[in-house]
Amino acid sequence: MATAVMTSLDTKSRSAPRGMSDIRIRNLFIIPTILFLIVFNIFPLIYSLGYSFTDFRASSNAPASFVGLQNYRALLNDPFIWLNFAITAKYVIISVTGQVIVGFGTAMLLNRDIPLKGLLTTLLLLPMMLSMAVVGLFWKLLYDPSFGIINYTFGLGSFEWLSNPDMALYAVAITDIWMWSPFVMLLSLAGLSAVPKHLYEAAAIDRAGPFYTFFRITLPLVAPILMIAVIFRTMEAFKTFDLAYILTSQPTTEVISIRLYKMAFQEWQTGRSCALAYIVLIMVLAITNIYVKYLNKVKER
């Protein structure tokens, strides 16, 4: 096929420019995507920035009136919003720490000759590919105090997970750890398998103990990739919505995304929710910035 095309084109002059110029093709390939993202991501954000200075309520027909910075002032002085941020921070810490321990630990165990290693790794990765909302829903049954298999397996009697205000956030985090430890494991495995084998051989010749080998060779070399996993998961956990929304309706699990959702679509405080969205957005962009800087640093090496 290729030769046919070549001969058919060969008759044309080789020096003359054929088809579109490279610059036109470049613009044709890139500009639509940029425009699409501007129209459907940036423009909405500008739109909501405008509303964040008003008292607009999407549920009423009253026209929006300008209130200046009042929404922002009210939000930043609202202790309940800070409580939502504190819950989010607690959730991020529990869930990311758990994922690093389980994920990195499993990667350390897997980083050796194991029969059916490929199959085991694929099976372990399954949870993170599944829908958070749909699988999260099923965890409701697993956590059920009277007939859930978690209480049965661990002999916890009729321990309350989701309806207990002190436990609910941990229950959500445990499900999140189940879903996302595989992600940390996957990246850790990549890092571990990239550690040059001769370093371990040299350490063995020097009769270095396992702790020395781990802290002086393994950890420093895996750290950059592990760090990517940590920042990425922090970013995602900060934005978390699906799991907490599906699993519980406790005030103790009201992470910031859920507060934002309720403010916007249940209380219909549209103007104020736009302001809160902006506060959240600035925080997310800050973490994203750190993430991308770090990615570039790792890529350069």
Binding site: N41, P44, L45, Y47, A58, F241, C274, V284, L285
Partner: peptide
Amino acid sequence: LLFFILSTRMLPPVVVAIPMFLM
């Protein structure tokens, strides 16, 4: 430009959803 493209992915869905719903 590539950073801009990536950053659109990082936007929290609920944040984008409020103006998109209105639009």
